[in-house]
Nucleic acid binder design. Structure first.
Length: 275
DNA sequence: ATTATTGTTGGTAG
DNA sequence: TCTACCAACAATAA
């Protein structure tokens, strides 16, 4: 379930698991997921490298490796990185073949005497693991990251002024702001009391400031929920996403569901005003 | 069986 | 060169 907050959560885990670690072995059985597409080439380029840093921009992760290589990771819609905490004692190096359900790529990492196995799991296979020596165009083109760079309201306004689409669709454009996805856009617009159908270019300076606040609010809230989550908390942490027909938590009007740019959009007719 | 799902990309058209 | 639109990718869960 990866938008900016989830990817940041994964980054923190990966940083803990991988930074300073040696890549002992790699198993990439699905050519669709990795670049270079030939799994052997992907595996051998990575093996023997040390992970120096794990950073993030928007929904992209970037691992800096010794020797100038970079591993870019995008989780797609259903991708995830997890530690295999239950290794098979009879098979201490299960780096060959798929090990977890929907595992697409496996890594064995080592620092000192500590060895661990990390798996890239992705049922829908829209995620990508890209090995390169330069930053990818997709990475370079990203707009400011709301969490790391903050949101410059004037610059945001200048960018949106030339857009004729709805503010909701504009927010999903990763060159506008990096990392905002469907859920975060829905939640932020609700918080800012802006109708998602409003033209991006029609927002006032005051609207933009409210939107920037709304984005920070929902991103930090979602991240906090991830980092403090208890095992039994199954309830959705979101205020209106996925709650069509429920009363608005703010004004009690029934939440609407529409489609914008091919994506489901929830909003409140009662308190989100059209611009 | 039908519908919906937290994302990007490449092609087309303007 | 920039913006907008759409199909395609794939595997579930309700």
């Amino acid at each position: 379930m990866p938008e900016l907050p989830e990817v940041e959560y994964v980054r923190r885990n990966l940083d803990r698991w991988a930074r300073g670690h040696l890549v002992v072995s790699v198993s990439a059985k699905d050519p669709r997921i990795v670049r270079p597409t030939r799994p052997k080439a992907f595996e051998s380029s990575l093996t023997g490298r040390t992970v120096q840093a794990v950073d993030r921009r928007g929904k992209w992760l970037r691992c800096l490796l010794d020797g100038g290589q970079r591993l870019f990771v995008h989780l797609g819609m259903t991708g995830w990185l997890e530690e295999d905490r239950d290794p098979d004692p009879a098979n201490p190096h299960p780096a060959v073949g798929h090990y977890l359900r929907f595992e697409r790529v496996g890594f064995v990492l080592r620092r000192g005497k500590k060895t661990r196995r990390i798996a890239f799991v992705d049922p829908r296979r829209w995620g990508r693991l890209v090995l390169a020596r330069e930053d990818l165009p997709a990475w370079t083109a990203l707009g400011p990251d709301p969490l790391d760079d903050g949101i410059d309201v004037a610059r945001l306004g200048a960018k949106l002024a030339r857009r004729n689409r709805s503010i909701k669709e504009a927010l999903l454009d990763q060159t506008v702001l990096a990392g905002v996805g469907n859920i975060q856009a829905i939640e932020a617009l609700w918080r800012a009391k802006i109708d998602p159908r409003s033209r991006a270019s029609a927002l006032s300076r005051r609207d933009l400031a409210a939107l920037a606040r709304g984005l920070r609010w929902t991103i930090e809230r979602t991240l906090a929920d991830l980092t403090t989550k208890r095992r039994d908390s199954e309830a959705s942490p979101f205020k209106i996403y996925g709650r069509r027909g429920a009363p608005c938590p703010r004004c009690k009007a029934l939440l609407q569901r529409i489609e914008l740019g091919g994506r489901t959009t929830t909003f409140c007719k009662g308190c989100q005003e059209r611009r």
